[in-house]
Design a protein around this nucleic acid. Structure first.
Lengths: 385, 385
DNA sequence: GAGAAATTGTTTGGGACCAGAACAAATTGG
DNA sequence: CCAATTTGTTCTGGTCCCAAACAATTTCTC
């Protein structure tokens, strides 16, 4: 089972009005999120950056420290006169979440603390032989529990899972994950069962969506409010951050760009159509040739698809991730050419195309951010004991 | 000239922290927006709907009334025992905005009050002969000023303009409006000049974006948080409401879907490419045949494009507007077929395809909503005198 | 038709929270 | 060593909302 992320209280009876204590929560969240995203800051910097008065900043920081979410140590190195201001940092152990990524032949798990600190990581093969989802998720749960014991004495604020497939966000139900050979698997519920901690939320999301979130918060998309993450692999997925927020669509299926038509006279796709983006520009076609060279035509098709997305969404930045990241330099001339053939001048001028900065870790960081979001938005609620 | 919409204070020095008076503003805005969107409600309904206590609701409503934004009249018809609760309504004259739509051979202007009340409307031909942008905008300004005199004694809270072209939101600069024959026209600045009221904000936006906003707030998209508005005409434009908010992209160019590739073996487009959506499914192709019949192939291409958007954005609802609205019934079988050929099952199941409910008025209502947004978000600020 | 029950407006008291002023502390520069 | 500067700390005041108590008004029941 899984609770809904970011949307406030899941089953609250509509509380639109604000109270004075909501101000407190908002201000605590503002400070904590700032520390989480931008790293340590002096108290005076926090005040200047948020417009909160000195006395209140002191009080808020004191509360964050009391709750174990932050720590105050030493003084900021400053130039110029004046009393030094203590440096406030997030306390990574204050909130620890687990992240998992289900790959085609391996699973990666990580424990991440507040501030995005990687506290532990492990990778396991799942073997070529296709096993049941239950067996695979059992393996994931064991790996996660082991990690949780090591780094957080078993107490975690949430579990986030990246799945290469169509995921319903509300309950973590995976309709289809072709590369895993899964169809209609209740990943959220199954994993929650196997974890054996009913109160710990398990959030399941699409791999590209989490890649987008990871790159936006800790990678190549920092500071950009409109980001498209293109995850190359067997298929192609897109993750969207629009207006500074993850854009999931109505059910969480947004970003399914792989079957966008790009090549008029293309090859047949497994979906039954012809000329789908992922058929023309997916890993198999792009790297199918011998000798580790890329197919320039396939690279151009990447660009054509990106051009469509640029027209439609007018992003600041397009991050190429997955299998595209490591070979970005080889891709970029052809991709640029493809984009130019599709995208209108104005939107094209705005969008810069960059490689993934986090590589395979993007999804893990995204999964962590997803789980941490709730703690960040409401530092008052005590998670686990 | 134009102030940035929706994004809070344009040039404020970053005020992230909240104060107790922000609570007041938020609660006033919550009530006013509820009345604006859903119409009159009793005080007790307002309390129940927002979670605000009786005493506070009374106080807030009193303030709204004092500011001329709402009125309390009579009692709610209720069944059951209990003291009757007075009905609170928005006062349309409390905030009046002007809306304008620049069509190919006519301009439409309207005055809209709080609650979406149409207070006045006018339409003028601009003549076939292409005139200069300055002349056309002069005509628009005269029509708007005349309307303002009639309905609001010249005092309006804002002016919103719908333009069929690529508009930079920040300053209302129109890069390109092919159907008007305009290129690089500073519509926002020019119109603000001609209006002669420097303090009145002039907001310029793409026609499809405003259509989406109009349908979302007062038309076929009410209650849907993920909406795509497809505006059929000489070109095709899309307006996006995602996560309940207008999605503009980085500069405001989002939704430029007309040059998305849909037809592999299509005809050449004026943009130089081949098989663009608007070439295959635009007004000219769709209705080009004699006798007022539609071209079924063109209608299917509408569906293919919609299918792409459905895959990518996973909307609740796709609204067909512009020239598609009136002939929706004829279109729908072919469109559905086209969608089915492109969209994945899960996303397709979520998205319902409906006709525009407001017709040509969608853009005007959208323009009005755009201008009213600021008043709704901050009822405390007094606009004009 | 009178009284009970139910619902909501009104008034009052209190608590949570933040800002600003006044003062104290700590550092830099002359 | 002293002035200037910056920031932490303490205290007071003001805003705003909620809860409780009471009053008002309607419906329902006998």
């Amino acid at each position: 089972m899984s609770s809904s992320p970011g949307s406030g209280s899941p089953a609250a009876p509509a509380r639109l009005g604000a109270t004075t204590s909501a101000v407190r929560q908002h201000n605590l969240a503002t400070l904590l999120e700032r520390l989480h995203r931008r790293g340590p800051a002096s108290r005076s910097e926090l005040g200047a950056g948020t417009g909160i008065s000195r006395s209140t900043v002191a009080d808020l920081v004191q509360e964050l420290v009391a709750r174990g979410l932050a720590s105050e140590e030493g003084n900021a190195a400053r130039s110029g006169p004046g009393r030094p201001s203590p440096v406030v940092s997030v306390r990574p152990e204050g909130a620890v979440v687990l992240a998992a990524e289900l790959g085609v032949d391996s699973i990666t798990v990580a424990a991440v603390g507040l501030g995005g600190t990687l506290l532990g990581e492990a990778q396991e093969d799942v073997g070529r032989a296709r096993r049941t989802p239950e067996a695979t998720l059992g393996q994931v749960a064991r790996a996660l529990r082991s990690l949780a014991e090591q780094v957080a004495h078993g107490t975690v604020a949430g579990v986030g899972v990246a799945v290469p497939g169509l995921v319903r966000r509300s309950d973590g139900f995976v309709h289809l994950a072709p590369n895993l050979g899964w169809r209609d698997v209740a990943v959220g519920a199954l994993l929650a069962d196997q974890m054996g901690q009913p109160t710990t939320p398990v959030l399941v999301a699409n791999e590209a969506d989490l890649g987008a979130l990871g790159e936006h918060r800790r990678g190549a998309g920092q500071g950009h409010d409109n980001l498209v993450f293109v995850s190359g692999g067997v298929g192609i997925g897109a993750g969207l951050i629009l207006g500074g927020r993850p854009m999931l669509g109505s059910a969480g299926y947004a970003g399914e760009a792989g079957h966008m038509l790009v090549n008029p006279s293309g090859r047949p796709c497994s979906c039954g159509k012809v000329g789908c983006w992922e058929t023309e520009a997916g890993e198999a076609t792009l790297l199918g040739g011998a000798g580790g060279t890329i197919d320039p035509a396939a690279a151009r098709w990447i660009g054509v698809g990106v051009g469509n997305l640029v027209n439609l969404l007018n992003p600041d930045v397009v991050v190429l991730g997955g299998c595209y990241g490591p070979i970005f330099d080889q891709l970029v001339p052809h991709v640029t050419q493809g984009v130019a053939s599709r995208a209108l001048g104005q939107s094209r001028a705005v969008a810069q195309i960059v490689p993934s900065a986090l590589g395979p870790a993007a999804q893990l960081h995204g999964a962590a951010e997803l789980c941490l979001a709730e703690t960040l938005a409401n530092p008052t609620v005590r998670r686990r004991g």
